[in-house]
Each structure stands twice: as structure tokens, then as C-alpha cells.
Design a protein around this nucleic acid. Structure first.
Lengths: 208, 208
DNA sequence: TGTACATCAGTGAACGCGCGTTCACTGATGTAC
DNA sequence: TGTACATCAGTGAACGCGCGTTCACTGATGTAC
């Protein structure tokens, strides 16, 4: 949190790498993934435009680092919400869904870097690793949930987790941030809750 | 479809406005909403960088026009798919869902301009009008579908259409365009079909 | 049908701007002895 | 504890670039008579 106003005493910044990450988060949150520029991130960190090159290969690399940290945080939050499937597979699954939306709302900069910055996972093994891990939590939660069903009417867990992922992502993009959905009569939380509720009833997980 | 290579014979272009719209579509599809520049659109239309200002207030205004045309096309396709709810409310509803995904895949430039360009509906009444109209088709389809249910277990149509909208948009963003979902084991079409199928069963529309 | 003229839709040069990136540099820090 | 030196993490100036936008201009088109 070392900003321009917060003048450095020393020639060395001390924590420039992370300061740049934080500046990037702020800029991305405010102006979108493309409103972000390396030069302005440097400015916000109170450092010359050339300084970031001591820590990042360039603009892309900085965004990738933000996404990387985002995926780790995301995975942590989902895992914590999942809580090893306790107390029940259903409650754990619901909590994971809620954690998804909570992450997107509380960490919009990370979310945008991860899903809207146009960054590509292929060719960045670090990113692939952390994103796979985060997504696997959702799949695991789906698996445990589906275990309750007789095998004959049990859809693939990956499919189910993709359904939930899609619905969650859609709710985030359309209704969570003054986006196209605009002033909808339902909050993002309500929409996701009710949507997954109906979906789970369709799966036969919730009776009646 | 009047491109650079397709040299104008005359001093006047004849159809520059639409040529710029088409160039924008191509650029946006290829490089994302921010990879697009007015200058390059002009270049692709075989015209000087100043020419677009005869037809648009500026960069934003051109993107807005693309989005506007997109919403109109989108609305037309949804309405055609809906087909006045014939032959059954359920089949019409399903067709609308499929049309949503088909539009996103066949007209990615429009879709991106509409939903990912960061364009704002507020303050552009033209845009608001056409987008409202498109979305109302989805709500109408939901309404007719829900009419089959006893009032006691009938959720608001707007909520249902928002659920479907969210799931559809999520599928488009995550699985329809080599996006984060990457090489998933299911196609976007399959995912949306199965997802809405489970959802509709949850609503009690599809039995068993 | 011809002509005079207004309007329209382009041109091309110019502007100021901020960006990403490179480079030789230098002050601060860490370490071997 | 002191000193010499290597390394590190910044600086600041400079570059080339393409962008958005403005402006006076001009060639083409449309119209009144």
C-alpha cells in the first residue's frame, strides 16, 4: 500500500513488486483491464516509469502476476468455504457458490485480471497450475454432492461444476457490478442463490 | 464489405458509415474491444483517419453504433426463435436459449461490443431501447413457460430470465471462445443445453 | 438541358499526448575478509 | 569493527510509435432555375 503520496524515504522502495501489484489492482478496478498502463502503475507506486522493469518483463507480465495472486486467493477462499465437505456435501457446495460471488465482489481487480484481461493460460504454466487448483475445488464439491445420487441419474461432476461456474460468472458479469443488467429487481446474491437452488432441485439433490 | 484492397473509384466512399461499422466488427472480433482503434478502422475502410468524424462523434460513438446494430439483430433473432411461443412454450423457450448462444458465436463482434466493451447504456437512450427490447423477448418466453405452473410454485419471470441469461452469458464467456474454460470436455452448446435442462426440471417444467 | 451555386464527404497535414521500452547511470545495500 | 567491492534497485532522459482529434482545404454531388 505504498503510494505516491506516501513518499519513500530511501532511494530503494523496499517493496516495489507488491506495490505495483496493488497499484495494478486499483487501476484495473477503476478503469478496466485496458485502462491500466504500466506508466501509471509506476506513478502510483511513486517510482519512475523504468522501475517496474526490475521486477516484471513488461506490462503483460505484471497483469499475469496479479492474476496469479488472484487465483491463489480464489482457491484459498473456495477451499475454506468448502471446508472438506463439512457439515454436509450440500451445504459445502452452496458455500462454495457464495464464496465465488463474494470473491468477485470483494476482489474485483483480481477477478478482472483473471477472467476479463484477455490473459492466456496456455504458455504460462504458473498460471495454469493455480487456476486448475482453484477450479478443482468446484469440481470436488460437485463430486461429493453427486455421490448422493444413484449412479443411473448422476451427471458428470465436471459438467455440473461447469454449469455452476457459468451461472456464477454470468451473474457476476451481468448483475454484480452495475453492468448491463443494470438495476435489476434482484441482487446478485439472490439471483445466484435462487438459480443454483432451482438447478439443484433439477438434479434431484433437493427434494420436491 | 468495402475494404482497403477494394479501392474506391470515386472521391466519395458512398457507404462509409456502414463500412466503418463492419471494420469495427472485424477489429473487435480479432483483437478485443480495446485492440480496436478508430485510426485502424478508417484504414481498413480505405479512408483517411479524419473521415470517420463525418459520421461519428468519435471512437465511443462508433462502438455504440455497433452495439446498437447488435442489439437489433439480437432481438430479431431471439424473436424469430421464440416464434410467438409456437408450437409450445417449452420448445420456444429452448429455442431462445439456443439462439442466444448461436448469436454470440456467429456475431462475436456484436456480442463483444454489446457486453464486453464497457459501453454504458445509461445516457444513451437509443441503446437502452434496443437492449430492453431484446431482453424482453427472454422475459416473455419465461412468462409463457411459467404460466404452466400452479401460481403457488411460480417464480417471477424476470428472475427466471435472468437465471437463463446469466447461465448463457457465462457459457459464452467461459466456453464458447477458447476462453479460460479452455478445452473443456463439453461443447458450449452441450453445456447450455444440459444446464438449462436441469434448471427447467428444477422449476418443475420438465417432469421426473 | 445547361448552368450557378450550396452542400456534402472526403483529404492531408498537423497537434499534443502518453505509452512501452531501452540505456547508461548511480546511490544504497550486503558481504568477504 | 572497518573497509573494499560486487550487486542490487532505483533514476532520468531519450526513442519511436500510433492514437484521437482539429482544421482549412477541395473534389463530387445535388438542386433551383
Amino acid at each position: 500500500m505504498n503510494e505516491q503520496s506516501n513518499a519513500r524515504k530511501s532511494y530503494h522502495h523496499g517493496n516495489l513488486k507488491q506495490a505495483l501489484v496493488e497499484a495494478t489492482l486499483a487501476l484495473i478496478t477503476e478503469k478496466g483491464p485496458q485502462g491500466f498502463t504500466l506508466a501509471e502503475a509506476a506513478r502510483q507506486a511513486g517510482v519512475s516509469a523504468a522501475a517496474p522493469y526490475r521486477h516484471f518483463k513488461g506490462r503483460e507480465d505484471l497483469i499475469a502476476e496479479v492474476a496469479r495472486q488472484g487465483y491463489i486467493l480464489f482457491g484459498d477462499l473456495l477451499e475454506h468455504a468448502y471446508n472438506n465437505g463439512q457439515p454436509t456435501a450440500l451445504s459445502a457446495f452452496s458455500k462454495v457458490g457464495r464464496a465465488y460471488l463474494a470473491f468477485a465482489k470483494r476482489h474485483p481487480g483480481h477477478y478482472i485480471a483473471m477472467f476479463e484481461s484477455g490473459i492466456s493460460l496456455t504458455g504460462n504454466s504458473d498460471l495454469t497450475t493455480v487456476s486448475t487448483r482453484a477450479m478443482s475445488v468446484m469440481t470436488l464439491a460437485a463430486e461429493k454432492l453427486l455421490a448422493h445420487l444413484p449412479a443411473s441419474e448422476r451427471p458428470p461432476a465436471i459438467m455440473v461444476s461447469h454449469h455452476i461456474w457459468a451461472m456464477s460468472h454470468g451473474v457476476v458479469e451481468l448483475f454484480a457490478r452495475g453492468a448491463p443488467g443494470g438495476r435489476a429487481p434482484f441482487s446478485a446474491e439472490d439471483l445466484l442463490e435462487s438459480g443454483t437452488g432451482i438447478y439443484l432441485r433439477g438434479l434431484g439433490i433437493i427434494p420436491e
